[in-house]
Amino acid sequence: MKIFGIPVFPEQASTFAKDVDALYFFIFATSAFFAVVVAIAVIYFGIRYHKTHDGEIGARIEGSLPLELLWSVIPTIIAMVMFGWGATVFYHLRRPPAEAMHVYAVGKQWMWKFQHLEGQREINELHIPAGRPIKITISSEDVLHSLYFPAFRTKMDAIPGRYTELWFEAQTPGEYHIFCAEYCGTNHAGMIGTVTVLEPAQYQAWLQGGGLEGTLAERGAKLFNDLACSTCHLDTGQGRGPSLKDIVGKTVDLQDGSSVMVDEAYLRESILNSQAKIVKGFQPLMPTFQGLVSEENLVALIEHVKSMSPNATTATVPATGAAAATPNPAAAAAEKK
């Protein structure tokens, strides 16, 4: 919305935008009501009960329990409505649909790098199709960042050492801001870009134009060989490391008797901090790749491993990101469906 040509309200370019704005108008109307009531009362009393002569004092009114209860209980109820509504919108915002298109984002001082599964890589630009849920898995090469799409009304911090994610479904083709919302040093304000929402057909055309190095998984397969992962992780299960075939979304037993579901966070941890969780029946022989694999290559490796489990739907990253987490069998079962 614009007044005198100046934007005063952001464009609604995602399905969330309407949900979030509806919530905004509800809280705004409620707040404005109370503010106006108090303002009118305060101004009216100020005029009506203005002191008229020296020595005048106010009426002795100590208080009123019913009134106190009234103006404690009513705001409490209204606050609970706000909480419930807000929590509902939030829950939706935090639950990407299983069929969402997957994109990886890496924050780095001071740029956003995006990688499409089809192999396209972009810096400070992101092309996506309209009308399709998009899930972005976010990581950071250095410090905290926060991937922010104001027109989609969503953001999520990029945290070094773990994955976070956000999702949205863009509706209106066009170009919108990408900001870094979490202060990240000198050129924080320069860590901005443009997200281009394309009609699905245009998006397909755009995809044809890039991906010279093959898909993300193919790049990962090459790294898998270059880093000699393939010498131990044999498909047969006879190698010094466990087979990685068809493991994503499954639960594996660990040396210490616990078990863990294989998702992006677990794969990430197993590459960077290989001693953290040892699969039952194997020796802790794998070297750590901390500092040897960039966030972008890590993502490619994970996509390669995921491509070895063709039957698994995309493993979800818990919003907490930490690779730990005792697996939830129900969630694992849901994954398989």
Binding site: D19, V20, G46, F83
Partner: peptide, 29 residues
């Protein structure tokens, strides 16, 4: 009197930020 007005606006805008679905958009802005 000024305090009443400003504290009321400050407090009420805090409701926006405490509301989860809303804060995701508003956080760090």
């Amino acid at each position: 009197y000024g305090f009443m007005g400003l504290f009321a606006i400050g407090g009420l805008t805090g409701l926006f930020l405490a509301t989860l679905g809303m804060d995701i958009h508003l956080h760090d802005t």
